[in-house]
Nucleic acid binder design. Structure first.
Lengths: 176, 176
DNA sequence: TCCGCTATCTATAAACA
DNA sequence: TTGTTTATAGATAGCGG
């Protein structure tokens, strides 16, 4: 039996594409699992298949989630030092929201908290390249905030004065 | 030449483990790439290797980032409806921070913004199982906020009254 | 460390039940 | 559709340079 070499192109036939997806997906998960075991690393795969119409997350598969299922993304990360400033990256409306939040802060502690939270929105890393399939479901901006040292409140639950230092773990993700 | 079957266990020898990592990683990326092409899906891999001491993101590799490189995670997602409430999942200190933020909001618009931002922190989805390797660099909580419809401010940059509706895309990630 | 090499093992395309 | 088989393409462990 002679089997011709696989042509690396989108499989137009629905059933064979799905079959291929299942087979290769299984193989991929196995490979990731083995890589984890052999090399002592953690791996995580995220894939979106229009056919399955749900987002798959490995190692922990999730159920069909209506919002996330429409979420299709290409992740691209780069160091923050490559970004000139917040305005050069975030959309004008994002800046507006941030400015608005600043304006709303009158109280010192509010100011501290909010400024720390949102001024540093571009704190260390910027991840861009998010691509939403259904802009009606998930448009706008994604902000990922890594709150570093969130225990740093005093016994009354008030923020301590050196919060800036403790919140330097921030991370922001923006998308257009 | 007889080659014995690979034992599926952590490779203790440093150089051979690294070699294996490189080879298998390459193969994995190729497989993901082919799966993308053949089945018309988007894939994204995140892996952390202690040896490389940097987080790798495919398809867009990132440079050695000091914070994220120490970040090692296992992702587990589940639908929010499986979570009883915020308190059952988020740590006490998270709740404290959220409460604190609420307390700090006196102004109505502040209240609106902040409540919408943080009250709904467990809005739709909860992702847990994050595992930080270096707790000194990245401990605490991760909150991912999907700001849905962030254009919804009036011409003066003030939040409109029905902000709750427009911010329902929130997503929170918490970890202990 | 980073190539090549290649014997061997694994994944999987195609066909059929 | 799902499962099984089988030939082949492809991946890779171990080694040498």
């Amino acid at each position: 039996m002679i089997r011709k070499k696989v042509k690396l192109a989108y499989i137009t036939n629905d059933s064979s594409r799905k079959a291929t997806y299942k087979k290769r997906n299984k193989g991929l998960m196995k490979n990731m699992s083995e890589l984890s075991t052999l090399c002592g690393i953690n791996t995580c795969a995220i894939m979106y298949s229009p056919d399955e119409s749900q987002l798959e997350v490995w190692p922990s598969p999730i159920g069909g989630q209506q919002v996330l299922s429409k979420f299709r993304m290409i992740l691209e990360m780069e160091q923050r030092k490559n970004m000139v400033n917040q305005e050069s990256f975030l959309s004008q409306r994002t800046v507006k929201v941030v400015e608005q939040l600043k304006k709303h802060c009158k109280d010192n502690q509010e100011k501290e908290m909010t400024l720390v939270m949102f001024n540093n929105i571009c704190g260390k890393w910027v991840i861009h390249g998010f691509n939403f399939r259904d802009i009606n479901d998930l448009n706008g901006i994604i902000i990922i905030v890594l709150i570093h040292g969130c225990t740093s409140t005093d016994d009354d639950g008030n923020a301590q004065s050196n919060a800036e230092d403790r919140y330097k773990g921030y991370c922001a993700i923006g998308c257009e």
